[in-house]
Each structure stands twice: as structure tokens, then as C-alpha cells.
């Protein structure tokens, strides 16, 4: 992941964007978690707490034989939905920095799919905002996942179906 290609600003340019810095990244390249974390940790004392979450391609018992995952999205609509989610989070938890990065394209087991970083005055705000963003992203942002398997030497694929448990998570907000 090249830092410059994702609208991540060099640290010395960030000051102009304070107090609220909001970034949305949809990337066909691997997410550079270290660079994203460095970006979210920029702080001149305005953030008493920062929380980061990373969701990765999992191969547990349920996904045995999974070789890769393809992520597709609706360009334009995804960005505007994420933007409106982040605006809600900024207002509700008084965030001063928030970043969402999401992969599209071909992913391998272990690859990061999504990165969420939130910064606010207190830890409760940063934790809750990160959970809210993930719950909304999973239910509203226009991404779709397809899993590719190799089972008994035969290639198989399936589109992941949405889960009731993800939907139920929205009731909290």
C-alpha cells in the first residue's frame, strides 16, 4: 500500500485539518496497518484516547479449505454511505480523528479487510464510535464478499450471506 495514493496526509500537513480529520480509503492494494495506525495516532494533545480495529480474512473450522476471498463494492455509493456513517459518529462521540480503510479485490487468508481508527477525548467515546462504525459498515456499506475454496482438489466458491446477528447488532445504536 503506497501511502501517497490514499489521501493520507503527511504528518506536517495534518495540522490544517484539525480539529476533525476524517478519511475514507477503499483500496485494491494490501492495507498497510502500520501506516494507517501511524496516521490515526497523530495527536497534539487533542485526543485522550484512540482505538483501532482490524478485521482480517479468517480460516477457522467453518472456512476450512478457503484459499482466497474476493471483495466487490459499488463505487461512489460505498464512499457516500461511509461518509454519512463517519459524520454521525463524529457528531455523536465528538471524535476529532476517524479513519476507515476497506479492501476490495483479491485477498489471501490473514489479509486485513477493514481498518477502523477513532480518536476522541475519552476511551468510552473512541471504543463506542469504533463499534458503531463497524456495526453500520457491516449492515449498510455496499461491499460483498465471495469465498474461494479448494476442497478435495475441486475449486468451489460461494457468496457470503448476511447474518441476522450482524443485523441485530444495530439495535444497540
Amino acid at each position: 500500500m503506497k501511502l501517497h495514493s490514499f489521501r493520507l496526509l503527511p504528518v506536517d500537513k495534518m495540522e490544517a485539518h484539525l480539529p476533525i480529520n476524517k478519511q475514507i480509503i477503499i483500496s485494491t492494494e494490501a492495507l498497510d496497518i502500520v501506516a494507517l495506525n501511524q496516521n490515526i495516532q497523530f495527536n497534539q494533545g487533542e485526543s485522550g484516547a484512540s482505538v483501532i480495529f482490524t478485521g482480517n480474512v479468517r480460516v477457522s473450522k467453518e472456512e476450512q479449505g478457503l484459499t482466497s476471498m474476493t471483495l466487490e463494492h459499488y463505487p461512489g455509493m460505498t464512499e457516500s454511505l461511509l461518509d454519512s456513517m463517519l459524520n454521525q459518529a463524529i457528531e455523536r462521540w465528538q471524535l476529532n480523528r476517524v479513519l476507515v480503510a476497506h479492501r476490495v479485490g483479491e485477498l489471501a487468508p490473514g489479509d486485513p479487510i477493514v481498518f477502523v481508527g477513532t480518536c476522541g477525548l475519552h476511551r468510552k467515546q473512541a471504543f463506542e464510535a469504533a463499534e458503531f462504525i463497524m456495526d453500520y459498515l457491516k449492515n449498510k456499506a455496499t461491499f460483498w464478499k465471495k469465498e474461494h475454496y479448494l476442497l478435495n482438489e475441486s475449486k468451489q466458491e460461494r457468496w457470503i450471506e448476511s447474518k441476522q446477528s450482524d443485523l441485530d447488532a444495530l439495535k444497540r445504536w
Binding site: 457491516k138 449498510k140 456499506a141 461491499f143 460483498w144 464478499k145 448476511s162
Partner: peptide, 10 residues
């Protein structure tokens, strides 16, 4: 107009 299944990102 776009038609699509329920979303599954994240």
C-alpha cells in the same frame, strides 16, 4: 438504478 443482495463487507 442498482439491484444487489444484502451487503456483507467488514
Amino acid at each position: 438504478v442498482a439491484f444487489f443482495p444484502p451487503v456483507t463487507g467488514g
